[in-house]
């Protein structure tokens, strides 16, 4: 018996690191997640501090200094990224544009998230007729061409920030509903849910304290992906002239305004496009990363 001391290499500790430690290790080892979250954070800070960071007023026109080249193409530090066709400072417009993109992305994702989650969880939890109605609504929603409907509605109601946010929020709930329905279906049959029901917990209580905590990981992933989706759609609507209206600085609008000059001054199109690409890429990487580190099947 004296041999069975813990020093024996065969008796090595079986209890591994705690789940929290595992999660931390996974987050630290996930380059995509770190990069994505980092970029999103930086852009968020820039958007919040826009009035402090922007070197100029983004609306101030200076027709004498139109289309000044950026500093890396022979311009001056007065306008680091040059000026647009109305002589407005491009860097300042980009910085304020981050506000528009992030605001539209987050509020639209919030609205559609609330609608879609409510529908999906109700369908998954109650099943039967509720499920049939929700599934039907999802089918109807998927059948409608998003860009076309959004454009038409914005054209009818007029293109303000609020209208664009509302339209996108009301159109992009489908993926929330689909994923939340599937996740709820999975969780609903677990023993702890039956246990809560058996001790007489009310339906809202079961949903809020038994179901939601177990599907919130999936919800966060969809929130990020739909935020990226909304940002891209806003840019497309604004590019087509039926989204955010001038002179509001929106990256999609900046690409559209630069389009006519792109033959001679391609940077007018390149710069806002690259920034848009980087933001959407970062949000997507963050979403994918969150899915990777929280996915239950890879938790072993």
């Amino acid at each position: 018996m004296a041999l069975q001391e813990p020093i024996d290499p065969l008796l090595e500790e079986i209890s591994g690191p705690t789940p929290r430690q595992i999660l931390r290790k996974r987050v630290q080892g996930h380059m995509g997640l770190l990069f994505g979250a980092g970029v999103v954070l930086v852009l968020l800070v820039i958007a919040i501090l826009a009035p402090v960071l922007a070197p100029h007023d983004p609306y101030l026109q200076d027709l004498a200094n139109r289309m000044v080249k950026p500093v890396f193409m022979g311009g001056t530090w007065e306008h680091p990224l040059g000026t647009d066709h109305l002589g407005r400072d491009y860097l300042s417009r980009l910085i304020y544009g981050a506000r528009v993109s992030l605001l539209i992305g987050s509020v639209a994702a919030l609205i559609s998230g609330v609608i879609g989650t409510a529908m999906g969880v109700a369908a998954g939890y109650f099943g039967g007729r509720v499920d049939a109605v929700v599934t039907f609504l999802i089918n109807v929603r998927l059948a409608m061409p998003v860009v076309l409907v959004a454009l038409a509605v914005v054209a009818i109601l007029g293109g303000s920030l609020q209208v664009v946010i509302a339209v996108l929020g009301l159109l992009l709930w489908d993926r929330f509903a689909v994923v939340m329905r599937a996740s709820t279906l999975q969780v609903r049959r677990r023993e702890y849910v039956s246990a809560a029901q058996a001790i007489g917990a009310s339906t809202p209580r079961v949903i809020l304290s038994e179901i939601m905590p177990n599907i919130v990981n999936n919800l966060i992933v969809i929130v990020t992906l739909e935020m990226a989706h909304a940002i891209l759609l806003e840019a497309a609507l604004s590019f087509l002239g039926l989204g955010v209206q001038p002179p509001t600085p929106s990256w999609g609008l900046m690409v559209s305004e630069g389009k006519n000059m792109m033959l001679f001054e391609p940077w007018l199109v390149l710069i806002p496009g690259v920034v848009l690409f980087v933001l959407v890429l970062a949000i997507n990487l963050m979403g994918d990363g969150l899915r990777d580190v929280t996915a239950p099947d890879s938790r072993s």
Binding site: A235, A236, V255, L263, P266, V269, G273, V280, N284
Partner: peptide, 17 residues
């Protein structure tokens, strides 16, 4: 990943140029 983040209108313009 890049494809999902690429605004199609912008991608089109770049190809045209």
């Amino acid at each position: 990943v890049a494809g999902q983040a690429m605004p199609s209108f912008w991608f089109g313009l770049i190809l045209i140029v």
